[in-house]
Every structure is written in C-alpha cells, then in structure tokens.
C-alpha cells in the first residue's frame, strides 16, 4: 500500500516527457533484412521515417491510461489484452520501459500521439546500428553481444548505455519490442489457429525464412514476436512509436 502511494506520488510529481517529442528522423534507404518473405532476397527499401529515441516508459504509459481509462488494468476488455496486462503495476519502476502491454495497447498508445508502431523493417534498420556505424551487423563481436537481447545482460540494458548512430537508445535492451506488422513475421508452421481448426495461412504465401542464419539474435526476436497474439503480454515485451515522414 505504501509502495503504491509512493509510486503514485512519483508518477504525479515526475516531469512527464511528452511522447509526442523525442522522435529521431531516420533517412532510410536500401537495407538487407535478415528476414525473407516468400523466398525473396530480403532486400528492402526503407522510406524516411521518425522513431522514438526511447521505448515508452511506465510513467508515459501511466499518463496514457489516465487520459484513456478504458486501458486501465481493471477495465481493459479481454479482446484487447490478456490477464497479464500491466500485471507488474504498481510496483514497476516509473522510468523503466513499460512491459506487460498487448499489441492492441501499444497500437492505441501510439495512435493517441498521432504516431504508429514501427514496421519490422524500420525497427531492424535502426537496430542494425551501433554507436558509430549505421550497420554493425558484419562485426562478429558486436553481433555476439546482441545474443543477450531481451535479458538483463543486454548491451543497452545498463544505465548510461550509449545511443546508437541514429541517436536511438535501447534497441538492444532487456525488453523486446512490439512492431506494427509483427503478425507478418510468421512461417508456414504457425498453428496459432489450430484450436479453431483454422490454418490461418496467407493465400499464395510460402512463409518466411532467414537471409543469414548467423543472425541468431534476430531469429530469436522474430520467433518470440511470431508466437504472440495481439492480446498477449509479456514481462519483457514493450514498445516504442514511430511516424511516417509526410
């Protein structure tokens, strides 16, 4: 109870960084994605866009819930979030990335700021950078460190971790992040609809594969997202927002 009150006071007193700020412009360009769709070559053209420099924090999400009470833990409908939704509140660290949020909640949060979730290709493009290079993926040592993504040992999990080349932080942090088109990250073997007897397959699609089997960190991330339903929540799955460049 005491912890809850302190938490509430901290939330009220905290200077709430407006989520509409804090976006970083990304020029985009040609990009070799690790993910291949339908046997393509994984070559993407990422259009210019903007992405939030930080994952959405507990404090920021709390502000959203206050102005959109239908997203409160005790009011959210079952279609939009599972029972784990915001299960860690109110003991969560207000400055930490928000977790235990469904795709629907992340989608609604970003829309409320006239933003959207980043697409996978956009996310992957920004995440390919280290502090000095736009694409550090050929660096075996750097790539090895990305194996810790989604764990407390992740390279961006420690406080004071550098922003990457684009000025974006936490892409390789202790939490995974939703992407807007996460539902496309699924292969033929998907059986999510099996309990209904539905195969839920794309027409004409042969599923996805990986351009670079050494890119284990990406494979792990995609495998995790592809196992999610849009109402699913996880203790180490959060999100950040993006915006198209007009």
């Amino acid at each position: 109870m005491l912890a809850a009150s302190i938490f509430a006071i901290v939330l009220l007193a905290g200077t709430s960084p407006a989520a509409s700020d804090g976006f970083v412009a990304i020029a985009g360009g040609p990009f070799q994605s690790t993910v291949r769709y339908d046997g393509d070559d994984g070559k993407r053209s990422v259009a210019a866009f903007a992405i939030a420099s930080h994952a959405v924090t507990v404090r920021e999400f709390d502000g959203f819930v206050r102005t959109h009470p239908q997203w409160a833990r005790d009011r959210v409908p079952s279609l939009l979030a599972d029972s784990g939704y915001l299960a860690n509140w109110p003991s969560a660290d207000a400055d930490a990335p928000v977790t235990h949020v469904s795709w629907f909640a992340a989608d609604a949060y970003c829309k409320s700021f006239d933003a959207r979730l980043p697409d996978w290709a956009e996310w992957e493009y920004v995440a390919a950078a280290d502090a000095t290079r736009t694409d550090a993926r050929s660096d075996v040592a750097w790539r090895g460190r990305t194996f810790q993504d989604g764990t407390p040992r992740a390279m961006d999990a420690r406080s004071g971790a550098n922003a990457n080349f684009h000025g974006v932080s936490g892409m390789h942090g202790a939490t995974w992040e939703w992407v807007g088109d996460y539902a496309t990250l699924m292969g033929d073997a998907d059986k999510r609809g099996a309990e209904n007897g539905d195969r839920l397959q794309f027409c004409g699609a042969t599923g996805l594969s990986f351009a670079n089997r050494d890119d284990y960190a990406t494979l792990k991330r995609v495998a995790l997202l592809s196992a999610m339903e849009p109402r699913s929540t996880l203790g180490n799955l959060g999100f950040r927002c993006a915006r198209s460049t007009p």
Binding site: Y37, W103, F104, K111, A183, M186, F202
Partner: peptide
C-alpha cells in the same frame, strides 16, 4: 490507414 492493422488484429486476419 492506421486502422487497417487494428481491425485485422481484432479479426485474426493476417496480411502483408
């Protein structure tokens, strides 16, 4: 535009 994905998710329809 922004609602296509949301509706597809609610209906369990995947597209790319």
């Amino acid at each position: 535009d922004a609602d296509v994905r949301t509706l597809a998710a609610a209906l369990g329809i995947r597209y790319r």
